[in-house]
Design a protein around this nucleic acid. Structure first.
Lengths: 250, 250
DNA sequence: ACCTGAACACCGTTCAAGT
DNA sequence: ACCTGAACACCGTTCAAGT
């Protein structure tokens, strides 16, 4: 109706006729024999995500992969958000299952962090997915595993939730950054420009160091080592806060 | 063509006719008098993002807000990705401009962190945007500001890039999590379920503490205080790594 | 050079119709 | 109860046509 009034306002005259005749009955594709299930949907989704990245995960792609109609998956999952959520949980659960939680708590935390880091090398989409919703199952699993180790370090009460939040936020945030960066790895130019710009800006505030020095350090870093260095900084921070005065450290 | 063959395969007969008559000339809307610019586009985008959230930022909404055609903005920006990127930089640059970089370096880093945290309270979409691309201008600005303060703490070379990466990843990651969590604040039930599940899982691994105790601690936390506690943990960790043996701390 | 708006090539989700 | 696939209500981006 508003379209028609628009047409009159624009002083043009328009006729649109669409006519479709169908001689019944329409022959439909036969049903698949094997039943659909949440599990099969997750498996297909992970395969597609690994192969084509996050932009490749469309409802059409998933249902085509499962040889079914577009609407079929809605009988098993709520929507695309849940699809990504349970796919990420599938990957993270697998990683955490491989961790031995009985060793030195710091070592367990390090291997846990390394495990999820390595996992996003294979499944970059997990990195971006984890930071999208703090209350999704995969994040709950990471929180749980970290909290258990903090408990074994005798960290209790709000110290534990503070420390846990810091580490979860760091790990999830770092994964997202490295995953997003790797996703643009083909775009080396952007990366180099960024690092050079950073080195330049640093040197502007710092007469004692050269642009070239900072640029070299920044460019030659290894993502994995830098990530683990961050975990170690965090672990040192927890110890220091525990040992020393908890609130003042000027 | 493939559609027609499909129709024959399905054994149906279909005719589709679409006919549009227009008496020329079509009267077009007059041009706006004030010229479009990157700046006006960013301003409009921020307004829309603040009012309607990230899902409200469509090219159609932006161009309608600017009373122009859908395609007009493509003469000034590359696409939607750049739209979000420059909008986020607009907000972050404003925050960083308000920071006095001359005080105690740790205090400056804390106020910087607090500043961006407060900003995402007003502009939650910035939180999710920052974690989407590590090489975007807004992240470069944060990196720069943090690096300058680390330099003032006499942290150099790879120690600086490690410490900087740790802080940037933590801050950006935490912002994304809190922003995403706040975006679902209406969904208190999910949040409560998550925290209760976490408390339950913790207590399963820990005979000396009760579910209820953990649940209470987790539920009563304040996001801002928890975020700042994390900043302090990293600052302590940086100091400790500097003072003590840099690589072993068992 | 800049702007307009229809057209294009997609999306996620719904739902009447089938089994 | 589950599945099918057309239809619906959107997207971002392109581009011939105008100024």
């Amino acid at each position: 109706v508003d379209q028609r009034s628009n047409i009159f306002r624009l002083d043009r005259w328009s006729i649109s006729v669409k006519m479709t005749l169908v001689n019944s009955p329409v022959q439909r594709n036969p049903r698949r024999s094997d039943a659909l299930s949440r599990n099969r949907i997750v498996e297909a989704s992970i395969e597609i995500l690994d192969a084509d990245g996050e932009s490749g995960l469309t409802v059409r792609a998933v249902t085509a992969h499962l040889s079914t109609g577009r609407g079929a998956i809605y009988h098993h999952i709520a929507g695309k958000e849940e699809l990504l959520s349970i796919a990420a949980e599938g990957v993270i659960a697998h990683v955490l299952a491989d961790i031995d939680p009985e060793g030195d708590p710091r070592a367990v935390i390090r291997s846990l962090a390394l495990g999820v880091f390595n996992a996003i090398g294979l499944h970059p989409w997990v990195g971006t997915q984890l930071s999208r919703d703090p209350f999704q199952p995969a994040v709950l699993s990471i929180w749980t595993a970290i909290g258990v180790q903090l408990q074994r370090l005798d960290i209790q009460g709000s110290d534990r939730s503070d420390a846990g939040a810091a580490l979860v936020n760091y790990v999830v945030g770092a994964l997202a950054q490295y995953a997003a960066g790797a996703g643009r790895a083909s775009d080396d130019v952007t990366r180099a420009q960024f690092l050079d710009a950073l080195a330049t800006r640093w040197s502007e505030h710092d007469s004692s160091s050269w642009v070239q020095e900072s640029a070299t350090v920044l460019r030659e870093h290894d993502d994995r080592e830098q990530f683990l260095a961050g975990v170690d900084i965090f672990l040192s921070g927890i110890t220091h806060r525990q040992a020393g005065a908890p609130d003042t450290h000027e």
